[in-house]
Amino acid sequence: MRMSTWIRQHVAALRALLVLTVITGIVYPLAVFAVAQLPGLKDRAEGSLIESGANTVGSSLIGQSFTDDKGGALVQYFQSRPSAAGTGYDPTASAASNLGPENIVDSSPDKIGLLSTVCGRSKAVGELDGVDGGRPFCTPGGVGAVLSVIGPRERDGSVDHPVTVVSVNEFCSVTPHPFLTEYRGVRVECATEGEDYSAGLIVPIRGDAPARPAVPADAVTASGSGLDPHISPEYAAIQVARIAKARRVSEDQVRAVVDAHSSGRTLGFLGEPRVNVVELNLDLDGRYPFEG
């Protein structure tokens, strides 16, 4: 007796299921596993783990924070770039801040936007490493230099004759004296927490900071994953003097270790030159232990 069309279709489907299960569920994973065990690939396949003595201390692919229990930078270590992954470099919470370039107004002293975040970080790095932490559109106090200019609008949206001018990121409870004394002849006021100044024309003030700040961009912005273990050679360079002083060695000795953990662009054109901070700090501990 010939099988019905319905039965034949289901038998064919079952055979396809079994064949694809064997191929994709057994053969392919085994093939990938076998390839991953080849010399040069095995370490990466197993997480590129870093061993120190009998302990696993991290991965060369995942960054770490080198700070104390209060979040302060440990002076003997090169600092990583900021991280938005959980509380910092949490592999289970890989993420970016998702704040964009137009996020320039703070909600309160505790809820700050991207601009003030960058300004504050730049100021802190500058103080830590003895360089100028100033950057365009930042106040000397380390917040976004942004005004709300309130007054009658012209046809093009400008405010030529302001009535009130408020430094929206400088709250009176923290900074009673704004970074500008006046704007277009009107005294600049500090912001009152809880007030909405969106009715005014939002005007960022560039200031006189150099176009190329001493503190590089990767020192003040998080990576897309929040897990990047690398920093730029420029960020490493401004930290050398601090590391050398803390470990009581010469700056040339520290630079030699930095060079040993530096990489150029992949294949000569992909990405940017970089320094692996995790491997660098571990090597420094081995060569020049910090004595406190």
Rank of each mutant, 00 (worst) to 15 (best):
S4N: 13
T5A: 14
T5K: 14
V11K: 04
A13M: 11
L18S: 09
I23K: 05
V27W: 03
V27S: 06
P29G: 10
A31I: 06
A34S: 14
L38S: 10
G40K: 05
L41Y: 08
K42C: 04
K42G: 08
D43E: 14
E46S: 14
I50H: 05
S52A: 14
S52H: 07
G58Y: 00
G58W: 00
S59N: 07
I62Y: 00
G63M: 02
G63F: 00
G63E: 01
Q64P: 00
Q64E: 14
T67Y: 00
A73K: 04
L74R: 14
Q76F: 03
Q76L: 04
Q76M: 08
R81S: 12
S83Q: 05
S83L: 10
S83A: 09
A85T: 01
G86A: 09
G88C: 08
T92V: 04
S97T: 15
L99Q: 13
P101I: 07
I104C: 11
S107E: 12
S107W: 03
I112F: 04
G113T: 00
T117E: 09
G120P: 02
R121K: 14
K123E: 04
V125P: 01
V125L: 06
V125I: 15
D129Y: 01
G133V: 01
R135N: 06
F137Q: 09
V143E: 02
V143A: 06
A145I: 02
V146F: 00
I150V: 13
I150A: 07
P152G: 07
R153M: 05
R153P: 00
E154N: 14
E154A: 15
H161V: 11
H161D: 10
V165D: 03
V165N: 03
S167P: 02
F171K: 00
C172T: 12
S173P: 01
T175H: 05
F179V: 11
R184A: 12
G185W: 01
G185I: 03
V188D: 03
E189N: 10
C190A: 11
T192G: 07
G194A: 09
A199W: 02
L201E: 10
G207W: 00
A209E: 09
A217D: 10
A217H: 06
T221D: 09
T221Q: 15
A222T: 11
H230F: 10
E234N: 13
E234D: 15
Y235C: 06
A237M: 11
I238L: 15
E251D: 13
D252A: 15
V254H: 01
R255M: 12
A256I: 06
V258A: 10
D259P: 04
S262D: 09
G264R: 09
L270S: 10
E272L: 13
V275M: 08
E279A: 14
E279K: 15
N281R: 08
R287T: 02
E291K: 14
